[in-house]
Design a protein around this nucleic acid. Structure first.
Length: 923
RNA sequence: GGUCGCUUAGCUCAGUUGGGAGAGCAUCGCCCUUACAAGGCGAGGGUCGCUGGUUCGAGCCCAGCAGCGACCACCA
């Protein structure tokens, strides 16, 4: 093995070998365990969020595979309708082509070309991460079988009246010319104006010649159908039923009363535009108002408005209306106003409420069982709190607009005849045959379905639905869904609704909601902020120039490039090191606490890269000291250190499994890190050295140590494998010849996971080693504080203590000498006078290092004073507590006893140190 | 307006029925001790956001306040 861990040399070879062994496929035996990947955009590339979630999913998959479960991780990608179409349209625009120029068929050919060209990126990147899904089942939401499932769902819902078509107000994206769902509209606060407009009364009375209405969108007045006031509003009550002369339009509109109006806001008069505002639409329905659409699909003014306005862009029309009102003396005032502006999440264009024919899903009906599934605990959110977010949305769910005026996606399986009759079915042939339409002219609906309609079927459809097969039976409900809270509504809720509707089963039993990856300061990673990290760059490393290049090309705001380049150079003057996949994966696990934001700091990766190196070198040590597997059959005796490390290993296994069961990957990572570094490396390897190197230990003891070195290393590698697959496989294969395993037994990824065994728990060994550690640390501290060279052998005296200490000092003699660099250990008899010495305590026992020529009086006094201070404080606190009658009488007996013992211990320690201090002082 | 969350060491974060404040990174000192300088050994560093309450006892439970954040809805 190389002296330093080099991730590059080992990763991809193992991946190819795993693939070839078909180990990623479900074994067909054991308990089913299944995870569905949240399908990323087929033309996208892997970002930190994917890498994070995929690491979690892969860790779970590998763990369950090693546990012997029938494990399936289903991979695949999403066609991502609007996003993908947008990318391809942009590419075409660069060539000077519009999609309309090509026509639907040719355009779709181009999209498929693009999909085939860039579609493999994500999968390739997943392989770099060591992800182990069953690639033979890789799915795409527009595969034939999935498309069939989509149509089947649509047809059934339509037949049950749960999908319907209707003319309604929708959120219209005037750039993409499509409806979008409520969820795809992002409202942000922007500075605007509140325009107060005067609407003249047809019959002015003494008090009023006009009413003043306030609006943030003056252009909509062209479609006004009424002015509404509150029915109880004394100011206007008498005007209800009268009419307004709508300026610029030469129309009369009524004044109506509706308690939706807030008397306190503005003037208390609201202009009502039923065709261009959701609230007005509802009011219009209540009052039978006409729906007058005044916009085109481009959000220009249409011919329903006065001729002056035809063809004007909505914002130009706004300007003209303001100036026209002003010219007529009808502009009352203009106030600055902060309002929420709705924009399309993809186009960033301001969306307009727009009257069109669209398809809707009756979400309320589907939501009912989906809510109950979570309430009953059949589906559990982890962390649990997310159920509230889910309930809140589900209880207020609106019908889901599923039609999109796009070309890329699942075309709606509905056909119309010339008379406007609708026929829904799998294909035109089927529809014709079923409805006996003969050669009647039929035209398929031009629209496609919302992408989330198909991803909502993902778990059941990838398993084969609507066909009833073994996979569905075995793997549904799937075990856990791993995803972010940002798509609970988009995706999670829809999978539950559609899944329960069509299979009668929940799609998954648990939903593990991960945090969102942010940069080291908690900022969202984004191209425009220039703080994006590419997981592949962390694995492979990247030169500064290339990183700057990457961050500053293709920007929305090129003027920020300089700033971003400067910041990048400051943060990564040397570029980014290559840390390897395993370090990155371990970092993700270590960061996966319950927090909803995860600040990703590269320093953490560096720390865990060092951990990889530590593991690597521990293995090197074992290999250098174990030449063959003779120990397997040799006679062995296991020393206290061997029993100790095996005992500690059991606790590690137990803790790991407890934490994994609750998705606390951070605690799992910490448990493993501490065992490997602080117990196996720091102590066990050091304890093994004297046994292996000294003649004081016989062959059976040496064999016992060798055997323990190998077997604990083997168990550690298994424990670590789900988090760090490559380095563990590499080391394990090197170590395998030293164990009883043969080459036919498969690779590490299919070995059994360590099982906790209480038989190996050895409290006696743990006590002995804890004592030994206390002695060694006590001596090291004295050395360090008194500047005694670590290489200088010391003669120490032990004093006080009891028989057990004498026994341990005897049995651990060689270990103590080696670990603390001692030349001798002697016992001070009880009646002998102690020499002036630096003192450490190990329980009741004193460790004395005579000062002669070694120890500086003032330094040692300072050190002792610090210890004494600490003890005095403890004693003060403890005795205060124990003197409090309330505490003694009300606290549980065990707590009181514990405090008493602590007090006694502290008092005893204090008196020893004080004696010692007096002695030194007197020198 | 509604819902949820956060505030612990310089930084990023753990802290599991309330019972001695922890980790990693960073900092300081010593050490090339035959696995590892990506290392070893040791050290320093926190009035647990503020105020009050419950309790023998509060980082943890309750109330209020302050600051930060997310999501949902929205008055023209």
């Amino acid at each position: 093995m190389e002296t330093a861990y080099n991730p590059h040399a080992i990763e991809q070879d193992w991946y190819q070998r795993w693939l070839a062994s078909e180990a990623f496929k479900p074994s067909g035996e054991g308990q089913p365990y299944c995870i569905m990947i949240p399908p990323p955009n087929v033309t996208g590339s892997l970002h930190m969020g994917h890498a994070f979630q995929h690491t979690i999913m892969d860790a779970l998959t590998r763990y369950h595979r090693m546990k012997g479960d029938n494990t399936l991780w289903q991979p695949g990608t999403d066609h991502a309708g609007i996003a993908t179409q947008m990318v391809v349209e942009r590419l075409l625009n660069a060539e000077g082509i519009k999609r309309q120029d090509l026509g639907r068929e040719k355009f779709l050919e181009r999209v498929w070309e693009w999909k085939n060209h860039s579609g493999g990126t994500i999968s390739e990147q997943m392989k770099r991460l060591g992800d182990s899904p069953d690639w033979s089942r890789e799915a795409f939401t527009m595969d034939d079988n999935l498309s069939h499932a989509v149509r089947e769902t649509f047809i059934q819902l339509y037949q049950e009246g749960l999908i319907y078509r209707g003319k309604r107000l929708v959120n219209w994206d005037p750039v993409f010319h499509t409806a979008v769902s409520d969820l795809e509209v992002i409202s942000t606060e922007e500075q605007g104006h509140l325009w107060h407009l005067r609407y003249p009364l047809t019959n002015p009375d003494g008090d009023h010649t006009y009413l003043v209405v306030a609006t943030t969108r003056p252009e909509t007045m062209l479609g006004d159908q009424a002015v509404a006031v509150h029915p109880d509003d004394e100011r206007y009550k008498h005007l209800v039923g009268q009419t307004i002369e709508l300026p610029l339009c030469n129309r009369q509109i009524p004044i109506i009363a509706d308690d939706y109006v807030d008397m306190e806001f503005g003037t208390g008069c609201v202009k009502i535009t039923p065709a261009h505002d959701f609230n007005d639409y509802d009011m219009g329905k209540r009052h039978n108002l006409e729906l007058l659409n005044i916009l085109t699909e481009d959000a220009k003014i249409n011919t329903n408005a006065p001729a002056d306005f035809h063809g004007l862009d909505r914002y130009d029309a706004r300007k003209k209306i303001i100036s026209d009102f002003e010219a007529l003396g009808l502009l009352d005032e203009i106030k600055p106003h902060t309002l929420m502006v709705p924009r399309g999440d993809r186009s960033q264009a301001v969306v307009e409420p727009f009257l069109t024919d669209q398809w809707y899903v009756d979400a309320k009906t589907l939501a009912k069982p989906a809510i109950e599934a979570v309430e009953s605990g059949e589906i559990k959110f982890v962390p649990e709190n997310w159920d509230k977010t889910y309930y809140q949305w589900m209880h207020n769910i609106q019908d889901w607009c599923i039609s999109r005026q796009l070309w890329w996606g699942h075309r709606i399986p509905a056909w119309y005849d010339d008379e406007g009759n609708v026929f829904v079915g799998q294909s035109e042939e089927e529809v014709r045959a079923k409805h006996e339409l003969g050669d009647r002219v039929l035209k398929q609906d031009d629209d496609v379905l919302d992408t989330w309609f198909s991803s909502g079927l993902w778990p059941m459809a990838t398993l084969g639905w609507p066909e009833q097969n073994k996979d569905l039976e075995t793997f549904l409900p799937t075990s856990v869904l791993v995803t972010g809270f940002d798509i609970i509504f988009f995706w999670v809720a829809r999978m539950i609704m559609l899944g329960m509707k069509f299979t009668g089963k929940v799609p998954f039993k648990e939903i593990y909601i991960t945090g969102l990856i942010r940069d080291e300061h908690g900022q969202k990673m984004s191209k425009s902020k220039g703080n994006v990290l590419d997981p592949i760059d962390i694995i492979d490393g990247i030169e500064l120039d290339a990183l700057v290049q990457k961050r500053t090309t293709g920007m929305m705001n090129p003027q920020d490039a300089e700033k971003i380049a400067a910041r990048t150079k400051e943060q990564f003057p040397e570029g980014i090191n290559s840390y390897g996949t395993d370090a990155l994966r371990f970092t993700f696990c270590a960061l996966a606490s319950t927090s909803r934001d995860i600040n990703f700091d590269l320093h953490r990766v560096a720390g865990y890269r060092n951990f990889c190196n530590k593991l690597w070198n521990a293995a090197r040590f074992v290999l250098m000291n174990v030449e063959n597997n003779d120990h397997v059959n040799a006679e062995k005796t296991y020393g206290v250190a061997d029993r100790w490390i095996k005992s500690r290993l059991q606790s590690t296994i137990q803790d790991f499994e407890t934490h994994l069961a609750t998705y606390r990957f951070d605690l799992c990572a910490q448990t493993l890190y501490e065992f490997v570094w602080n117990e196996y490396c720091d102590w066990y390897l050091e304890l093994a050295k004297p046994v292996l190197y000294s003649d004081n230990f016989d062959a059976a003891q040496k064999a016992g140590t060798t055997d323990t070195l190998i077997s604990v290393l083997d168990q550690m590698l298994r424990l670590l494998h789900p988090f760090m697959p490559f380095i563990t496989e590499e080391i394990w294969q090197t170590v395998r010849p030293l164990s009883s395993l043969t080459a036919d037994d498969g690779d590490l990824l299919v070995q059994s996971f360590p099982e906790y065994s209480s038989d190996a728990i050895d409290t006696e060994a743990e006590q002995v080693i804890e004592w030994l550690k206390a002695v060694v640390i006590g001596i090291r501290t004295i050395r360090s504080e008194n500047n005694i060279a670590p290489s200088k052998p010391l003669a120490v005296l032990f004093a006080k203590g009891d028989d057990s200490h004498r026994e341990m000092a005897q049995s651990q003699h060689d270990y103590l000498c080696k670990l603390a660099r001692l030349e001798s250990i002697d016992w001070l008899t009880d009646d002998a006078e102690a020499p002036a010495a630096a003192t450490a305590l190990a329980g009741d026992m004193e460790i004395l290092i005579p000062m002669a020529g070694l120890i500086d009086k003032t330094v040692e006094l300072e050190r002792l004073d610090k210890e004494i201070d600490k003890l005095s404080n403890d004693i003060k606190r403890l005795s205060g507590k124990l003197n409090n009658e309330n505490f003694v009488s009300k606290a549980p007996e065990s707590v009181v006893a514990k405090e008493r013992a602590k007090l006694e211990e502290a008092e005893s320690a204090l008196s020893k140190l004080q004696t010692n201090r007096a002695q030194i002082e007197a020198l």
